[in-house]
Amino acid sequence: MSAPLSVRLKRAAVLSPPLLWTFVFMFIPYAILFVYSFWVQKYPTFQPAFQFGNYLQIATDPQYLRVLLRTLKIALFVSLGSALIAYPYAYFLVFKVRRPGFRLALYMAVVAPLWVSYLLRAYTWKIILGTTGILNSFLMSIGVLSEPSSVFLYNQTAMIITLIYVFIPFMVMPIYAVLEKIPKSLIEASSDLGVGRFRTFLMVTLPLSIPGIVAGFTMTFTLTFGDFIAPILVGGPDGLMIANVIASQFGAALNWPLGSALALVMLMIVLTIITISDRFERLGQGKFA
């Protein structure tokens, strides 16, 4: 039996804007990219065609694999680094900070930078890490360095540090959310049964917080994977990432077909990662919840 007309109309009214939005601004653009990826570059611009040359070029020219692997590596380091910093912080907030006001303040301290422009936050690291930057001045003032070092800026490490700083709120928020939901009674029960703090953490808290880690990992990983600002601002001559290559195909090379094919390859990688992490998350829930 179907719902009365008025209810169905209301449902449609609520659902149609997001559906329309998704269709117009997600589905159609991706469909256009898909079509473009079979086109062919022909001076001075590009022409409709149906051929797999762009995908073939991505597979055969080693530069694309090199940049993809580099991007994966950097995204992995950023996610790992964020998790290693964010987890202890969130744990501290949830289990060690007693006063709710103080806890909120510390939580906001991580989230608030999101309100500041990404560019500004990334640019700040140039000022910190540069040859005449704050870090060098500090190390020289305490006598660690006798002259400014250039190793801090314009390399992949600087990119990883900057990206961790920029994306870490996306790791803290989901981990904080899952840790907060863990009933304190479970931890008390564990301790009542004579299990030590460290084993309680390994056997109870950590497994229950896996969905949060996975969610944070997925977000920081995909955000880093698509980043093209950090390489320009703080990356060195070996900083090129896949999003920069795509941007240059749409711009400098005026090869939208190749750019579209690259974008779709990138989309496939990101979707694969999201699917895998989704499995992990469900596995975690099924096993431990």
Binding site: D61, Q63, Y64, R66, V67, R70, P237, D238, L240, V245, S248, A252, A253, N255
Partner: peptide, 10 residues
């Protein structure tokens, strides 16, 4: 353009 990108991919 691709040659230049390739240099930067090294």
């Amino acid at each position: 353009t691709n040659a230049w990108n390739s240099v930067k991919s090294q």
